[in-house]
Amino acid sequence: MTVALLQIENVHTYYGHVHALKGINLEVEEGEIVTLIGANGAGKTTTLRTISGLIRPREGCVKFNGQDINGLPAHRIVKLGISHAPEGRQIFSTLTVMENLNMGAYSLGGDREAIEENRRRVFDLFPRLEERKNQLGGTLSGGEQQMLTIGRALMARPRILMLDEPSLGLAPMLVKAIFETIREINKRGVTILLVEQNARAALKLAHRGYVLETGRVVLSGTAGELLRDERVRKAYLGEK
C-alpha cells in the first residue's frame, strides 16, 4: 500500500485550555481534492493551522510524504511543500500585488528563475493579478484578494495546497470562478485540502470529504457518498 501524501493521526490541539481538536484522523492522497466541512468552531481552521505548524498539537502526529513534521516551525513546513492560504484573505495590505507574490516565493530563496516561472503560472491562472501587479494589496476587491491569497500560496510551488474558506464573502459568480480555478490547479498536479462552509460546492468539487463536529471527525467518505448521506443533507446542505 502506498503512503498517503498527508497523514494526520489522532491529533489533539489546544487553544489555552480549550480542547479544539479531539483526536483527528485524516489522510490526503497525492492528486486528490479533499474537503473538510463542518459548522463554525468544528475545528476546520485549527486542523489546517496544526498542519502548517502555526499551532503545535499536544498529542498525535502529522506526517507529510512519510516524514513526521510534528513540531517543525511553520517556515520550515512551507519549504517541504505545504502551502496554506489562510482564512479571511490575509494578504499584506500595504505591499503591492507583486510584493505579495514575491513573499509567497520567500521559501525559494533567491532563485530568480524559479520565482519568475511560478509568477508566470500564477498570472496565467489569474490574469487579473497581472493587470493589478503594482497596486497595493489592500486596494483590491474581495475576489481579487482571494485570487492573490491563492496565487501567493502557489508561488512556493507546493505539492499540497490548503485553502481555508476561499468562498467566504464572495458573490456567487465569483465563488463559481474560484472553484473552477481550484479544479484547474488540481489538474495541474497540486493536491488540495479545502476547508469550506459552503458544503455543497465543496463536495461537488472534491473527491473525498470529512465532516468535523466539535473537534472530531464524525463522518468521512467519497464526495458522492457524503452528498447522498442523510445526516449531511440535513445538517450541511440545508435539506429536510
Binding site: S52, G53, L54, P73, A74, H75, V78, K79, S83, H84, P86, Q90, F92, S93, T94, L95, E99, N102, M103, G104, Y106, S107, G110, R152, A153, A156
Partner: peptide
C-alpha cells in the same frame, strides 16, 4: 530588497509571514 519586504510583511502579520516561509 527581499529581506526588507519580509520586514514589512512581518510587521503586518506574523502568522501569515510564517506561512510564506519567513523565519519571523
Amino acid at each position: 530588497t527581499r529581506l526588507g519586504t519580509a520586514i514589512r510583511a512581518v510587521a503586518l502579520d506574523h502568522d501569515t509571514a510564517r506561512l510564506m516561509g519567513i523565519d519571523v
